[in-house]
Computed example of a mutant assay.
Amino acid sequence: MIGACLAIAVSAEQSAQPANPHADVLSIGGSVTEIVATLGQGHRLKARDTTSSYPPEVTNLPDVGYMRALSPEGVLSVGPSLILSEEGAGPPEALDVIRAADVAFVEVPNALTTKGIQRKIRIIGKALDVPTRAKALSARVGREMTKAIQDSTRPEGDKKRVLFMLSTQGGKINASGTGTAADALIRMAGGVNAITDFPGYKQITDEAVGMAAPDVILMMDRGGDHGMADDELFDMPAIKLTPAAQNRAVLRIDGLLMLGFGPRTAKAVRDLNHALYNEGA
């Protein structure tokens, strides 16, 4: 069985301080919050959304709710002077009300590439008035990503087929096709996305899973009682006849690390590559 257990030490520079009277920023989106902290501006965070879980200190901040189900009252009640929001927050009618309020609102575009991550960093750095720090962090991330991707390169014939499963609600598999963060990470880490027939995430049939013939199942590490046990996973009719089930090959990785496409993505690339090819972290 392939396993990945990831832990990251948080530096003092990244620590958020909820009691700071000068905190003025509401961060919506896990990667946005992580970039704010990595830029040394964690002390300015006044509140965050539910997806913001790294660095761990930010979980002590007021939580305005899930980024795709925000309420204007909840967002504005924390009294931010600046809202940094990842693209895709909503619902749209709630954002219309929030944007109409007397609060600076900066939307940060999603990213699936190194340049996209660097752009996110620069946009956030500009909004926080720390462009020099953002330039330095952007350059560092660029170097780390380039090396991680180069080190993960595999010959085509050696690449493992990876099926990313977003959920298994009702026994139906919701899997990643092309153009997703999971798809991008799999390719960066030297793997092949086993599902390429459609873009985005979609519920797929048992037959489609069988035809995909994944060597490895990749899932978010939901922890506790929220995750699916190995025996239950490999006993699913769609999975049980795949190469992944025969080898009991499943990887569970922290969702924000894997799909956030922020400052730690180079680590996610390395860790996934090492886990796929048994090279050790």
Rank of each mutant, 00 (worst) to 15 (best):
I204S: 09
D215Q: 09
F234R: 04
I217D: 03
A229F: 08
M228T: 15
M219R: 07
E207P: 09
G210Y: 02
G224P: 02
L218W: 05
M228Y: 15
M236H: 10
A212H: 03
D225S: 07
M220I: 10
M228R: 03
Q203C: 08
G227K: 00
Q203L: 12
M228Q: 12
I204P: 01
G224R: 06
Q203G: 13
I217M: 02
M236T: 08
G224S: 03
G210W: 03
M220H: 06
F234I: 10
P237I: 06
D235I: 05
D235V: 05
A208S: 14
V216H: 00
M220P: 01
M228F: 14
H226R: 12
G224F: 03
D231Y: 09
M219Q: 08
H226P: 00
V216R: 00
A208P: 00
M228A: 11
P237R: 01
G227D: 14
Y201G: 12
P214M: 04
M219H: 02
I217S: 04
D221K: 09
D215C: 01
Q203V: 15
D215V: 03
A213G: 08
H226A: 14
I204L: 15
E207V: 09
A212W: 00
G210C: 02
A229G: 15
P214F: 01
D221F: 07
E207Q: 08
E232T: 14
V209I: 15
P237L: 01
D231H: 14
Y201K: 09
Q203S: 12
D221P: 07
L218E: 05
E232P: 00
M236E: 09
D206H: 02
T205Y: 07
E207N: 10
